[in-house]
């Protein structure tokens, strides 16, 4: 909660200081009377703290103010753009986890095989390549040369493929490297040796005993990465002209649209706070050491 209030204030200050709505609404040919009437109408003649309280009150009721540029309620505007971003982030995260985790496990178990080395080198490229660069490369190969996949927009079923892969690449390689590092650590643990001494199969040891222990720290990163994907997908969305929140933000920055920027900021903060909460709850579900001991020790 305190986090949200602080972010709320910053967001409010942003919308208050960036761009003068009066100027935006009235244009150059304004009269002094028009100006003052509008300032009163918008409530901008009141002290800043009163206006902040007003803003918080509004936000709590789902009212983020009116976009200067679109002249629509910001809430509605966000709702228009949010689904596209969530779709993209969801596909990208699922892809990153579905490919990254098995690759991490594989490279940890078969450390010295050729395939592991290829994965590891590939992951270095994945981590270091900037998103826009990767996006453009993918467009070049799959849209321009091969013509298999659409390079922009969100019209067909195949539209999300390229932007999702672009967005997932960084997360995927990160998850892979993280899973590998954790897994290598855990495979040295005494209980893994004991599990081998009990004659369990390699499969049970790797995928049940080791992986479950690996996932506790990896989960945090995956969840925070999801927040990151949603919040910072603006580069990818710009490259692929994906009609999501990132695009909305870029547009609103261009037009100095304060209310939209602050609402975006608030939404992002809310997302991260929620994700942190969910991760903490997941810890509880997975790791019995965090639960309070019930019934004697």
């Amino acid at each position: 909660m305190p986090v949200l209030l602080v972010v709320g204030f910053i967001a409010f200050a942003l919308s208050d200081f960036v761009g003068d709505p009066v100027l935006l609404y009235l244009g150059q040919d304004q009269t002094q009377e028009q100006r003052e009437a509008l300032i009163r109408q918008l409530g901008r003649d009141r002290p800043i703290f009163v206006r902040y309280a007003d803003y918080v009150w509004g936000v709590l009721h789902g009212d983020f103010g009116i976009s200067y540029a679109a002249r629509e309620p910001v809430g509605q505007l966000l709702m228009q753009y949010l689904p596209a971003t969530l779709e993209l982030a969801g596909i990208a995260s699922a892809l990153a986890v579905a490919v990254g985790v098995p690759m991490g496990v594989y490279t940890a178990i078969h450390r010295n095989t050729l395939l592991s080395r290829v994965f590891m080198i590939g992951s270095l490229i994945g981590v270091s390549l900037p998103t826009f660069m990767l996006g453009m490369l993918l467009i070049l190969v799959f849209s321009v040369w091969l013509g298999w996949l659409p390079s922009f927009g969100r019209e067909t079923v195949l539209s999300p493929v390229l932007p999702a892969v672009t967005l997932a690449m960084f997360q995927m390689t990160m998850i892979m490297r993280l899973v590998r590092a954790e897994m290598l650590e855990i495979l040295r643990a005494e209980y893994i040796r004991f599990a081998r001494a009990r004659g369990l199969s390699d499969r049970a040891i790797h995928f049940s005993h080791a992986l479950k222990n690996t996932l506790v720290p990896v989960m945090t990163i995956i969840a925070l990465q999801f927040g990151g994907i949603v919040a910072f997908s603006l580069v990818t969305e710009t490259v692929f002209e994906w009609p999501g929140l990132g695009r909305l933000l870029v547009k609103s920055v261009a037009s100095a649209d304060g209310p939209v920027m602050s609402a975006y900021l608030l939404l992002t903060a809310l997302l991260f706070v929620t994700i942190n909460l969910v991760v903490d709850l997941l810890y509880f579900a997975i790791d019995p050491r965090l639960r309070l001991p019930r019934g004697g020790a």
């Binding site: 209980y191 001494a197 222990n213 019995p288």
Partner: peptide
């Protein structure tokens, strides 16, 4: 060898605090 471990030869290690997997009952 795996079929022998646990079935025909059991093992007990030094540190009981680390020999059991903490995430399984």
């Amino acid at each position: 060898m795996r079929a022998i471990r646990g079935r025909r030869i059991g093992m007990i290690f030094q540190d009981p605090l680390t020999a059991l997997n903490p995430l399984f009952t």
